[in-house]
Amino acid sequence: MFDFSRGPLVWIAFAILFFGSIYRIISMFLLLKKDKAVLPYMNLKFGLRSLFHWIIPYGSTIMRIRPVFSLLSFVFHLCLLILPIFALGHVIMWKESFGISWWTLPEPLTIFMTFLVVITGFIFIFRRIADPTVRFVSSAKEYILLLLVIAPFITGLMAFYQLFDYKIVIIIHMWSGALWLAAIPFTWLSHMFYFPFTRAYMGCEFGFVRHSKDW
């Protein structure tokens, strides 16, 4: 089981992520053939202008209206992207598998960031329940996806602190991580790769076509 998780499972997960994402992006462009009022109004400068305003912290009005949520969101996403790539345990695996190696995060920082992901993740779940507006648009899927996203981080911590049977915990860690990767193209986690397109299109509609701002 461990060997399968360590080997083929990861490969399968990455393959689903990679080909699934490509499939979704290609199908988007194919659909654009029917939705003709999009591409003629795209413009690189205004697309990037909008993206820029929305990826820097507090660069848009809503981020200033919701300062705490924005901060948590930035922390969550940054840790979420950095940890899987730079955590020491993962870098060793990269090295063993492909012979490639890079800079690793110091262990205490890794632990700290992992806690941040888990804590902010639970705050997001709590927010979904506590805020009636968000609860109204949250179904089981939303909660399951959020739990799935933080599951590898919870199990990562459990593995680090050697809680329960290490072998089992690490297998759950790998499976939840794999599921998470595989779910990206087929759930709203796809905002990961759709985000630049939707944001840029809106930036162009507002900036390029309508001479106004969208932040």
């Binding site: 659909l31 029917k34 939705d35 949250s138 939303e142 709203w188 796809s190 905002h191 759709y194 397109f197």
Partner: peptide, 18 residues
């Protein structure tokens, strides 16, 4: 009539309520 934008918008929305 509205395939691409509808699809992408519905799939991208994370139901955050902002």
């Amino acid at each position: 009539e509205c395939s691409a934008r509808l699809q992408v918008y519905v799939n991208t929305c994370v139901h955050c309520g902002l």
